[in-house]
Nucleic acid binder design. Structure first.
Lengths: 263, 263
DNA sequence: TCATTTTGTCCTTTATAGTGGACATTGTTC
DNA sequence: GAACAATGTCCACTATAAAGGACAAAATGA
């Protein structure tokens, strides 16, 4: 049990935690499990006293950030959390434009279109438009996934040196869900190739039946801050994949800031 | 979107506040102002020491719940807040179905369609599909509005007695933006009529140029937990308003059909 | 049926986080 | 250029919240 691993900031797990830290741990635990959870379970997961969690969850419930789900004992995100999130999405110009692009892409292609980004040293799906086809591939928004499992992840690291990359990614994240190991050298080479080509494709990487196509959205410094991504069955026709990738690259370039000419 | 009214305690304004309370005050202040704000401003708004807010905002920024906006000094909601909100919206079955209904309604009618609910003793827009017409009426999601200003508000209170209603709504909320006063008796009568008719229409109430049409989504106990709502120009043709209202009532009834609790 | 586990609440203790200053910078205004 | 207003950081003090149990009640299972 990897109880108190604070991902984003390496802070020494003290014996006595700050209430805000505890609250954040609760929220992140719920995001990770992606399902309503009892307070006792939460306490176990994050290694905190139950009494502490009861008082904090009650306060968060009172504020509407959490809600009691169903009739018994589990809590999950509440309506206030939704309002906070909408405030973010509405205020963030890049995010707004990406949403429109997703709408367009999903509408035109009937494939699952996603907006992806980093969260700490993991990959997350930030937004998605699920495709309409029979093979409706869906992904949970916000669930953290090891970067080497994804096409987007390769693009999102393409401003880093090999050393930085290896330092950034936890060793265990190179192991795929089926047990295979992604070789560090291959991974670094993948990233260089993705950067050179301005896109990335993976076939049956994190899942044997899916193909991921990704294109980077870059800020003015040229750093990939997010990716647009299609998820389609791995056996889709090559020309369809090519067509999808072209659309993706085009949209992602429109969303990118124009690069700043060297100083 | 629980039926039980979200009771957000009127804090006894102690001299020394809990960190979590402070954090919630920060988030709610940002939701209220609906714009990136400096830490100093936040401190002024919620009456807290700047040093405290700096430490709390920094922690929230570290967690991604807040983000620094632009290059200077202001903070606003961050990507993590968005992920929390999406987790809520995806997990809440009623919310999911309402989103689909909004899509349908907005698509078919080209009017602005909204999902509204109570938050404490205020009315908020929870979700919206902005219309495509020339008079594109938009509302900020999550901003609290006095209940008497709205058509939906009348439906959302229709399980309360007159005394409960008057106790629930702050006196000052009966004053409209233009200074007019909503008479308590009229308001209670409005609510009774809305309940009897199963819908509510207001013309030029909170804004002289808009007409609001609303229909209630009820839980199995018959309590209105949310409303579907159209916002159109006040001078729209009566037959159009009637048609919109019919669609609204129909959709809202479909959403009321099954029990709301998630299991 | 009894034995376990889980749940929610309550209490005491003590490490510490929120406070209210001070301080040096930086940005504004006149 | 001086006067003023914000910004971000730091520090010492002490009210208080997280901790760690204890407890009854409810749920679970054997």
């Amino acid at each position: 049990m990897d109880a108190i691993v604070n991902k984003r900031s390496t802070k020494p797990a003290r014996e006595r935690q700050n209430g805000i830290d505890r609250a954040i741990e609760i929220l992140d635990a719920l995001l990770r499990t992606h399902t309503p959870t009892t307070v006792g379970d939460l306490a176990k997961q994050i290694g905190a006293p139950r009494s502490t969690l009861y008082s904090i969850t009650n306060r968060l419930i009172e504020a509407g950030i959490l809600e009691q789900v169903g009739d018994e004992g589990t809590v999950y995100f509440g309506q206030t959390a939704h309002l906070y999130g909408r405030a973010y999405a509405d205020a963030n110009p890049l995010h707004r434009r990406c949403r429109e692009a997703l709408d367009r892409l999903a509408m035109q292609t009937a494939a699952t279109a996603q907006l992806c980004a980093l969260r700490g040293n993991k990959y997350v799906v930030v937004d998605t438009r699920d495709g309409t086809g029979v093979f409706r591939i869906t992904t949970d928004i916000g669930v953290e996934v090891p970067i080497p499992w994804t096409a987007s992840g390769r693009l999102l690291l393409d401003h880093m040196s090999a050393a930085e990359i290896m330092d950034f990614i936890p060793d265990e994240d190179f192991q795929l869900p089926d047990g295979r190991l992604v070789e560090a050298n291959d991974f670094v080479a993948d990233i260089a190739r993705a950067r050179a080509e301005g896109s990335c494709i993976t076939n049956g990487l994190s899942d044997p039946f899916t193909c991921c196509l990704a294109a980077p959205i870059r800020d003015r410094r040229g750093i990939a801050v997010a990716t647009l991504c299609f998820v389609v069955p791995v056996d889709s026709a090559p020309e369809r994949k090519r067509g999808l990738l072209n659309r993706l690259v085009e949209s992602a370039q429109e969303l990118s800031d124009r690069p700043v000419s060297s100083r």
